[in-house]
Design a protein around this nucleic acid. Sequence first.
DNA 1: TGCAATCTTGACTTAAAAGTAAGGTATGAC
DNA 2: GTCATACCTTACTTTTAAGTCAAGATTGCA
Lengths: 161, 161
Amino acid sequence: MKLSAQEEYGLRCLLQLARAQTTGESLTLSQIAGQEGISSANAGKLMWILSKAGLVQSTRGTKGGYTLARLSSEIHLNQVIRVLEGEPAESHCKSYAGVLDACIHTGDCGIRPVIVELHQIVDNALAEITLSQLLGTEANVDAALHQIHGVKRSDTPSMGA
Amino acid sequence: MKLSAQEEYGLRCLLQLARAQTTGESLTLSQIAGQEGISSANAGKLMWILSKAGLVQSTRGTKGGYTLARLSSEIHLNQVIRVLEGEPAESHCKSYAGVLDACIHTGDCGIRPVIVELHQIVDNALAEITLSQLLGTEANVDAALHQIHGVKRSDTPSMGA
DNA sequence: TGCAATCTTGACTTAAAAGTAAGGTATGAC
DNA sequence: GTCATACCTTACTTTTAAGTCAAGATTGCA
């Protein structure tokens, strides 16, 4: 129940692009990798995943680089995490379903729906945060966090109780 | 942002013990492993982690086995997940902190507090669910399946298989 | 046209998690 | 006291995820 390294790095790369979007720049792999302290090869892999999913746009050749495919205010964290987990941004069938694809108890073991619901809670929380909210000042971060809390309290799990 | 295999199996093993608690039984490793379809060695590893953390009690020798250390209504999922992630059940210092311990941007990168807070949300959600509530969910699922599909689960007290 | 910058893609290497094996140790029954 | 049962613990193997490398493809510029 943690963010994987890939998820965290991917988020950070997107945050860089969101920052660059405000000035209209595009960023090269080496720029992105340099700021995150990871190799260009690794950053390239992440950006390829993100661009394949339609979250970023790439331009080849000299003066090429990466930009966000949409406004940073239109990119929600649940899409990002889903993509970085290896699922397409639109689909929601397998995402957040846990590592064990098949339940040996044919779906009626009781814990499965709870796990799915649990992941849904996480998804809802992430869906309320956009890249633009992550940008800039501590005030923005605080605003995002307060919004999370509001969502969490109004969207309490309805299991068992 | 998924449950690891270890987390999911550990939860399932605890659910078995919670079920056994209602009849005062204890379960041996081979019983637990058999029901989950995993090896006794693997189940033993999980149970050792859980007992070391004080969530289950073990009894050696003939007639030995495992029982919950507390009432199933007093064991919350956040404790379980934390333990299965490798952190002590009481502490909260490193748990849910993500894989990347240090942020190369010395804390001002904006994403770090959000990630920490995100994991806190998950923790809060998990803290509201107890093992006994999972048993209730299981019963609900059982009833729903019976009502909708006319399916009856094979052996009610012990799940499936 | 040719060169340099840059993304693209598949294969490879490395690190971490998951799972297995086996011997050790405590307990209860006889 | 002896033996069978069943947990305890460490070390090992397998599997999967993470990260790297290198060759290829595309674009802009001189």
